[in-house]
Simulated scan of single mutants.
Amino acid sequence: MATVKSPLTEAAQKVTGDALQGALVDLIDLSLVAKQAHWNLTGRNFKVVHEHLDEVVDLARQGQDDVAERSVAIGVNPDGRSRTVADRTHLPQLEAGPLPDDKVVAAITDTLAQVIGRFRDRIAATDEPDPVTQDLLIGITAELEKQHWMFQAQI
């Protein structure tokens, strides 16, 4: 049970809480996928892609903190436990072992596109129940789209 009284109605809190929880899972797993790629990257474009992956990790980590804190602010307890993320993620997982830079760029581009699609759905879902959360999701989506553009340009 949350210890914070929600400024939202019960119905708005449910819709918004679900959107934030889905965003949290996406962002936690995005940071893990990008870090896995970062550690196992190989190829001619190693340095550029290696450093770019850290930008995605930083974005995802900041976003997950903002999303989790917004959840608490509306009276919903965020669940970022590893079991929850593993059970609820929709992100494709990378192969184990060395990862060629061209495959990483393609995989991260696709992964970002999937996350962005779900974020846009959450933006639509929170339009009426909580414009404050919607604004947060819009800001994160703008940064995800910037990263998507930058990775897509490398293909």
Rank of each mutant, 00 (worst) to 15 (best):
7 P>I: 05
136 L>R: 02
46 F>G: 13
67 V>G: 05
37 A>T: 10
33 V>P: 01
116 I>V: 12
79 D>R: 06
76 V>A: 09
135 D>V: 07
80 G>P: 05
14 K>P: 08
146 K>T: 15
48 V>E: 15
153 A>M: 13
118 R>L: 04
146 K>P: 04
5 K>F: 09
126 T>L: 03
151 F>D: 00
126 T>D: 03
127 D>K: 09
31 S>E: 10
37 A>S: 12
32 L>Y: 12
139 G>L: 07
60 A>I: 06
23 A>R: 03
8 L>M: 11
85 V>K: 04
60 A>L: 08
15 V>Y: 01
118 R>G: 02
148 H>N: 06
91 L>F: 08
21 Q>Y: 07
27 L>T: 01
135 D>T: 11
81 R>I: 06
80 G>N: 10
59 L>P: 00
79 D>T: 05
28 I>K: 07
13 Q>D: 12
96 A>M: 11
152 Q>M: 07
16 T>K: 04
110 D>K: 12
149 W>Y: 13
151 F>W: 09
136 L>G: 00
147 Q>C: 02
153 A>F: 13
35 K>R: 15
147 Q>N: 13
35 K>P: 05
88 R>N: 15
133 T>P: 04
107 A>Q: 07
17 G>Y: 04
126 T>N: 03
38 H>F: 12
28 I>Q: 07
23 A>P: 04
48 V>S: 15
1 M>F: 14
42 T>M: 07
71 S>I: 05
140 I>A: 01
7 P>A: 08
7 P>V: 06
81 R>T: 15
92 P>C: 05
123 I>E: 05
27 L>H: 04
18 D>S: 13
40 N>I: 11
77 N>L: 15
117 G>F: 00
80 G>M: 08
58 D>A: 14
13 Q>S: 14
82 S>M: 14
67 V>W: 06
52 H>A: 13
58 D>M: 10
12 A>E: 10
100 P>I: 09
55 E>H: 13
131 P>L: 05
109 T>E: 12
14 K>N: 13
144 L>Y: 01
58 D>F: 05
66 D>Q: 13
142 A>N: 14
23 A>E: 08
81 R>V: 08
115 V>M: 02
17 G>D: 10
72 V>T: 12
83 R>A: 14
147 Q>H: 15
105 V>P: 02
74 I>V: 11
16 T>R: 02
12 A>Q: 06
27 L>G: 00
134 Q>E: 10
96 A>E: 12
32 L>I: 12
32 L>D: 08
38 H>C: 08
120 R>K: 10
133 T>D: 02
77 N>G: 09
114 Q>P: 01
69 E>W: 12
12 A>C: 07
9 T>W: 09
90 H>Q: 14
96 A>R: 14
122 R>M: 03
137 L>T: 00
12 A>L: 06
35 K>W: 10
89 T>V: 11
98 P>E: 15
74 I>K: 01
63 G>L: 01
23 A>M: 12
65 D>G: 04
18 D>T: 14
133 T>R: 01
31 S>N: 11
89 T>C: 11
101 D>H: 10
141 T>D: 12
23 A>I: 05
20 L>Y: 07
74 I>S: 06
53 L>G: 04
96 A>Y: 09
99 L>E: 00
13 Q>N: 11
106 A>F: 06
20 L>W: 03
149 W>P: 05
37 A>Q: 08
134 Q>F: 04
152 Q>Y: 11
41 L>E: 13
50 H>M: 14
74 I>Q: 04
53 L>I: 10
29 D>T: 09
136 L>Y: 03
64 Q>R: 10
9 T>I: 07
